[in-house]
Design a protein around this nucleic acid. Structure first.
Length: 466
DNA sequence: GCATGATCATGC
DNA sequence: GCATGATCATGC
């Protein structure tokens, strides 16, 4: 192998100084080998940083990119929208080798030896902007904390055990918390030929990746310096998984009535979020449960569910309002809702109304099955997109007995799908998002914010199941 | 009791 | 002021 003349960075300082010369530049300014010409896909951005910032030839070397420093370079995009900064996507690290992973301990694994120290270059991603126009924002050295390493080791072992159990074909990104084995290679039906032959089952090509939630947290920490509450110590993680630890925190409270919970945990200001506050207190969190470091990094989202005396759930489950324009411009495969649902693990905390008082019944970790997401989710998404692009949004009006007139719309309804539907989700009717095409009937250019909802009957069947 | 449209309450 | 988790209200 030839010597790489450009890779002579003798210290981290020198490396970071070199990176800083590129901060604020657009990729087209750094594209010394004209990689953006013709294709201009995001895959070339990492290569442009290697060549145009650090001046070394791209390679698929087994060593880290800066071997003498033990640092691997990664380039990744961020969203900066609404009030939040977030990672655009998971960060692929290296190939997921089914055969090697089966028998290699985490400490000796390729992914750990190559990626234990990362230089992460971030750029701001903007919808519709060519990659050449996007700008390098910042580079930072990322070292995993002790807790991170325990979680990642556990994740690695979950994947390893699945391979050992002959279930390599059942690996899914929601199996793990920070480190995942995401599918790689465009298109469906791709196979990892070597591994498929070795194990005698069809296996998708995969990569080790840091999950989106984890990336979002480390990027937010760097860019916003905000403090995040942590509820789990590294020492605890040595012996137990995040799920086990969370589950054990709830144990003393199962079966307790709300009045007993108030005695034990204190009385929240009576409000719509009081069940969330009980859960936070059980976990030892002061702030919102979903903002806790371990929840955010692992993309675990708490949802409180009330089971009524008649055995039903009264409420469907809401998600953040979407942008009509984004939906109109996106394909299902890259839609935000799909991205969110494939990466999200839910923690259901179930409170059951028994004789008029809610009792903390049980918890359940859950992710939506890929089949439902990609069949029903896709169907609903496409129907929604069609309605938005057609401009046939309002289908009529209804005068209620109090004289108020409400609008009836053509969005995919609860009655039309057993799992997923579209309904309003804003502060009130005047809380709107812009439409891609004005409504034909009313001429409205904005419409009451909407979101995807999971149907309560489906949630009920999920929590009734084992 | 559900479907559908609308809105509340908190926290940042 | 606004995003978001959660809930309400009407009509069938």
């Amino acid at each position: 192998m030839s010597v790489n003349p450009g890779r002579l960075y003798n210290s981290v300082d020198e490396l970071m100084k070199q990176f800083d010369t590129a901060v604020g530049k657009r990729f087209k300014e750094l594209d010394v080998n004209h990689r953006l010409v013709g294709n201009g896909n995001k895959g070339v951005l990492g290569q442009i940083v290697e060549e145009g910032v650090f001046h070394y030839p791209i390679n698929s070397d087994h060593n880290a990119d800066f071997p003498n420093l033990g640092i691997e370079l990664k380039t990744t995009g961020i969203w900066n929208r609404k009030r939040d900064i977030s990672a655009k996507e998971r960060l692929p690290l290296c190939a997921f080798d089914y055969i090697a992973t089966e028998n290699t301990p985490f400490e000796d694994s390729y992914v750990w030896s190559k990626c234990k120290s990362l230089l992460i270059a971030i750029y701001e991603y903007l919808d519709g902007m060519p990659y050449g126009e996007m700008m390098l924002l910042k580079g930072f050295l990322h070292a995993f904390t002790k807790s991170d390493i325990e979680v990642i080791r556990n994740d690695y072992e979950i994947l390893q055990n699945k391979i050992k159990a002959g279930k390599a074909d059942e690996i899914s990104e929601t199996d793990t918390n920070y480190l995942s084995a995401c599918t790689s290679g465009a298109g469906h039906g791709k196979k990892d030929v070597t591994a498929s032959r070795h194990f005698g089952i069809d296996l998708k090509p995969r990569k080790f990746a840091l999950k989106g939630g984890y990336m979002t947290q480390i990027i937010r920490k760097i860019l916003t310096k905000q403090e995040v509450e942590s509820i789990i110590e590294a020492a605890e993680l040595k012996e137990n998984s995040i799920e086990d630890i969370i589950t054990s925190r709830f144990k003393p409270y199962f079966g307790k009535k709300e009045s007993e919970l108030i005695d034990l945990l204190g009385k929240p200001t009576d409000s719509k979020n009081r069940f969330e506050r009980y859960v936070a207190a059980m976990l030892g969190a002061k702030g919102k449960v979903n903002s806790v470091e371990e929840f955010a990094k692992a993309n675990i989202q708490l949802k409180t569910i009330r089971l009524e005396e008649n055995g039903t759930i009264e409420q469907n489950m809401s998600f953040p309002a979407f942008s009509f324009i984004d939906v109109a411009n996106q394909e299902w495969e890259d839609s935000e809702f799909r991205e969110m649902m494939t990466n999200q693990k839910f923690l259901f905390a179930i409170f059951e109304n028994i004789n008029g008082e809610y009792v903390f019944k049980k918890i359940k970790f859950w992710s939506i099955p890929d089949s439902i997401l990609d069949n029903d989710g896709q169907k609903v998404f496409n129907e929604l997109k069609d309605v938005l692009l057609s401009g046939n949004i309002v289908r009529g009006f209804q005068t209620q007995k109090d004289g108020k007139v409400i609008r009836l719309n053509n969005f995919p309804k609860s009655a039309s799908n057993p799992y997923i539907h579209i309904r309003p989700h804003g502060q009130d009717g005047g809380d709107t998002n812009p439409l891609p095409v004005p409504d034909k009937l009313t001429g409205l250019t904005e419409y009451t914010k909407q979101c995807f909802w999971l149907k309560k009957s489906y949630i009920l069947s999920v929590i009734k199941g084992n």
